[in-house]
């Protein structure tokens, strides 16, 4: 699904964020991008969203060279990617429902479709009962679940989560990860950039480790660090994972 080939990214200020990066991701995979801040995770996300262009190399998504996409085609390309950030990025003056519906409105989905789809994803993330609340009335974990609902409401084949648990306490973080797993189970390719060692070690999913802009490790069932992970693969029980 995604082929990142020999990609180098140097910003205009001279910093080289990525050096000769090669990553292939198949449809339906769940991949962690790990590494310290500045290792290049966010740059990778920006390249995939085509907010930035690589200095060298090519990026193929579903066989399309996204470097060559025309400006006019960008919105349609982006509709294929759901995005979640550390800081949620919800609209404070809109309700939970409106925040999710917004993503469908701006891609001009018919109203019938919006009325059907929004309650369904709110149910999936377990926030049906809070759909009329404003983001400020929700906890951090709930806000991130709204962001997640917004990211998947248009059924994108790829979900990009850039440190989605960065602002959350460990229990709440797990809620989000469980949701990501569920979304992945339904066929969406999920890429999650994270520092959360515990989550990565527990999940035993593919791990791409970045360091100084290079891929230093790419393990199919990896851990955050190089040492052998000892914990067995179990999803910890957390909170009230309604909708799962």
């Amino acid at each position: 699904m995604i082929k990142i080939c020999k990609v180098t990214k140097t910003y205009p200020n001279g910093t080289t964020a990525l050096r000769d990066v090669n990553i292939h991701i198949k449809k339906g995979e769940f991949v962690f991008f790990v590494g310290a801040s500045g290792a290049g995770k966010s740059t990778l996300a920006k390249l995939l969203l085509r907010e930035e262009l690589p200095t060298k190399g090519e990026i193929l998504v579903n066989g399309v060279d996204i470097v060559k996409l025309k400006r006019r085609q960008l919105p349609f390309y982006r509709r294929g990617i759901g995005v979640v950030f550390q800081d949620f990025r919800l609209l404070p003056e809109k309700t939970v429902y409106e925040n999710v519906a917004f993503a469908m409105r701006v891609v001009e989905e018919p109203r019938r479709e919006i009325l059907r789809q929004v309650p369904a994803v709110l149910h999936l993330v377990g926030l049906s009962h809070k759909s009329r609340m404003k983001p400020s009335q929700l906890s951090g974990g709930e806000q991130q679940r709204v962001a997640l609902a917004r990211a998947i409401v248009n059924n994108p084949p790829l979900l990009l989560a850039d440190e989605p648990t960065g602002n959350l306490d460990p229990d709440t973080a797990w809620e989000i990860v469980r949701l990501l797993v569920e979304i992945n189970r339904r066929g969406t390719t999920v890429i999650m950039g994270t520092h959360a060692r515990e989550i990565v070690d527990t999940m035993k999913k593919r791990v791409v480790a970045l360091e100084g802009g290079r891929v230093v490790r790419d393990d199919q069932r990896g851990a955050y660090g190089c040492e052998e992970a000892k914990a067995p693969f179990v999803l910890p029980e957390v909170g009230e994972p309604s909708g799962l």
């Binding site: 969203l49 400006r71 006019r72 919105p75 349609f76 390309y77 982006r78 509709r79 294929g80 995005v83 990025r89 609209l91 917004f102 993503a103 701006v106 891609v107 001009e108 917004r150 248009n154």
Partner: peptide
């Protein structure tokens, strides 16, 4: 600008924005 950023992320066309 926040709203615009989100619109861009979810794939709103330039003219829609």
């Amino acid at each position: 600008r926040k709203e615009i950023g989100i619109m861009k992320l979810v794939g709103a066309t330039d003219w829609f924005i």
